[in-house]
Amino acid sequence: MKSREPLIVAVVAALLFASAALIVYFIVRPAHQATVTISGLELSPTPTNPPPTITPTPVTRDAASFPITITDGVGRRVAINALPQRIVSVGPGLTEWVFDLGVGQQVVGNGASDVYPDAAQNVPQVGDERNPDADKIAALKPDLVILSDNATARDAMTALAGKGIATLLFAPADITGVIAEGQALGQALGVSATANALGRAMQNRVDAVRAKVGGQSKRPLVFYEVDASNLDAPLTVAPNSFVASMILAAGGSNYVNATALAQPTPGSDNLDAALAPTQVISGSLVAVSLSDLQQRPPDIIILGDASVGITADEVKSRPGAWQNLAAVKNGKVYPIDDALLHPGPRSLDGLEQLNRMINGE
């Protein structure tokens, strides 16, 4: 019996050592490894998500410039008492600006359509740019809120002001307004130097497009398709829309101009109803009759509905008069990512793409 004691002690010691090693392993193991094999025994612990890591803000922010008063995009003077640390931005372009300015880590809420950059998808949603939810916004305890201007946003702004929350409204009408928006946001976020550098780079790109447009002999007529669910009355953009301003800046002529607009009639929001040749559907959308497209054929068709699967081939296969439109017969039907035509930093990419399409590059 005594001769076996050393063996038993050795076995017990080995088991204790293996147990200790196993415990230490699970304490220090990499978070991504889920399966371990020790002495032929496979263990599959329940994976756990590592705690979120916080990295330093990638820009230097100027806290000393606060308190500050900002003029927002609709001319309101808004006081911001201290460097914002909890920001809610609602609107794709606005959220893109905050991230481009290097302050994305301070975003605690945004809109349902604010999906760029990818990091913007990891914060709570508080409605969308047309319908921001003031209660959800206030619950996040922001010290600065940035909204796209509309009637609902103004109601939200009033409610938030009652809680002492500073709110900025923006609604740039064109690419120049987008650059100005970035400058104002740079001031509001304490990153004016970054905003100024981005603004100069954007202006250089705008100037390059303008130089090319200045050399054009004529402006082609551009039909920007928003929705052609009703092939007899496809939707396009109104002349006062941001997209129309981009078409103009890129060297084209928007299909619908101010003098072509008919007065809205009862039932005009029903696309199956009889429509005038050109009919206002909403503030920024217009329905154009197919007969109008035949009588005044566009030189170029740009597919703003490409994001829902509409292609040039699909347009070519449409029945009747569609196949006889000059833009279709001449192969001048181009898809575009409509996200590039929201007012925001990436709208410069959209402007350059439009310019290449219009110039046939």
Rank of each mutant, 00 (worst) to 15 (best):
S241I: 05
N204C: 00
G177E: 02
N254A: 07
P172Y: 07
V213F: 09
A249Y: 01
S268M: 13
I175V: 12
S241T: 06
G177I: 02
E225K: 05
N204A: 12
A193H: 03
S241W: 03
K212G: 08
F242Q: 06
Q183G: 09
G199H: 00
L189N: 07
G164P: 09
P220C: 13
R219F: 07
L168P: 14
D269C: 09
D174P: 03
R210Y: 06
G199L: 02
R210C: 03
S192N: 04
P234I: 08
T167W: 12
G214D: 13
A180G: 10
Q183R: 14
A166K: 11
G186E: 09
V178E: 03
A228Y: 07
G252C: 05
D232L: 15
G267D: 13
V222K: 05
A180F: 03
A195E: 04
F223N: 09
T167S: 14
Q203A: 05
V191A: 14
Q203L: 05
N254T: 02
Y224N: 06
T259W: 03
D269A: 15
L185E: 01
V222M: 07
D232K: 15
I179V: 15
D174F: 02
D272A: 14
L248Q: 04
L271Q: 14
R200C: 00
T194S: 08
A173M: 08
V191R: 09
E225Y: 07
P266H: 11
V226N: 13
I165C: 07
N254C: 07
P239T: 05
S241M: 10
Q216W: 05
S241E: 02
A173G: 06
N270M: 14
R205F: 01
L261V: 03
L169Q: 15
I165Q: 14
A238K: 03
P239V: 05
L169A: 10
G251S: 08
N270S: 15
L271M: 12
A274W: 10
G251D: 09
E181H: 10
N204V: 01
S241V: 01
T236N: 06
Q183M: 12
A197S: 12
R210V: 03
